[in-house]
Design a protein around this nucleic acid. Structure first.
Lengths: 187, 187
DNA sequence: CTTCGAACTGTTAGTTACTACCACTTTGAT
DNA sequence: ATCAAAGTGGTAGTAACTAACAGTTCGAAG
């Protein structure tokens, strides 16, 4: 990996870090993209080169492919809901390890800012698509069943994620997700 | 109800009707608010006086309070998921009666346009809030349980709604919602 | 019926997110 | 050493909104 890639990654991180800090301290709407660019020491154009929209300064990652492959890796002997639920819990265990404070700040923004909350929910929709693509191999009726189950599990897991953020990330996220799922499905 | 209110309602309907038609025929992004205003024979400012954002030209209603009161009216002997699920199915039975073609056009936009899809999902989030407010009367743990169940049921119902729109509203929506919920919960 | 306040509408000017285009610099491979 | 490619900045432009002002119309009180 050359110097160019390293500098690009560095710039990207700087921009995003300053963005989340300003959004948290000053407010999302009260902070312009020009403000973020100035704080990061770049031009506004450079911000848009790294992040397609202002919202993406907060919402860049997402674990769609990871989740989908985790679902596919579950033993087929389990029920559909159990396979999806376990996969979600496992994926959360991997994702939430590094830089918890930064992730928490981003999550709080995703909860409190309407535009970010909406986009975050839409990314769940994309995750459901990925799960359907990873599992569905038969009839439209089966796809309907898989998609409904996936959306239900993702909805429950989302509540766990919010709870985790509201308690400052002190509980363990995979456990909260399992708790949310069992309180819905009994199992 | 005076002439003023009638004219206001008339203008609002005209604006929204032309908006949905233009969005469907020309495209959401390719249609400007000025285009909508011109088609409806009003100024752009008038559009904003009736609808806070361009997105709200498609997403105005939503049945939060209806759903919440329907949930509260379910017999407490049923399980939590059953109470919420039945309430969703009942609310859908009331809402989908009048002007199906217009509702379908709006739904198709909510599915295909990313910004509208995101806001539509966020309105589900608001519905979950209303359900929680209607049911929760005890501990934070109970609220967690209610919210997780509500989001799960709403996620499944959303899949039914999409399916209904994709099949041009020919199946019955309450039945599809029940089908989605039973394919998730077994019950 | 007249009059006066309030609401509806239009116009204008401004902010901000975002895009297209052009020129300049820097990197990395030949 | 050179040249193509990529990163960066500047300018200009579109479109979603907002604030403030002025004109018009409705509706209620006298």
């Amino acid at each position: 990996m050359g110097l160019r890639d390293r500098q690009r990654a560095e710039t990207r991180l700087q921009v995003q870090t300053h963005a989340v800090r300003l959004f948290t301290d000053v407010g999302y709407d009260a902070t312009t993209v020009a403000d973020v660019a100035a704080a990061a020491g770049v031009s506004a154009m450079t911000v848009y080169r790294h992040f397609p929209t202002k919202e993406d300064l907060v919402l860049y990652d997402e674990y769609d492919p990871l989740t989908a492959s985790a679902v596919a890796a579950q033993p087929a002997s389990l029920s559909l809901a159990a396979r999806i639920g376990h996969a979600l819990s496992e994926t959360a265990a991997h994702g939430s390890s590094s830089e918890k404070a930064f992730l928490l700040a981003r999550l709080r923004l995703m909860i409190s800012v309407p535009a970010l909350r909406a986009r975050h929910l839409d990314s769940q929709y994309a995750t459901a698509d990925a799960i359907v693509a990873a599992l569905d191999r038969s009839s439209p009726e089966e796809e309907f069943r898989v998609r409904a189950t996936a959306m239900a599990c993702l909805g429950a897991a989302h509540v766990a994620l919010i709870r985790w953020a509201e308690t400052d990330g002190e509980g363990d996220l995979p456990g909260l997700i399992r708790q949310a799922l069992t309180s819905v499905f009994g199992d």
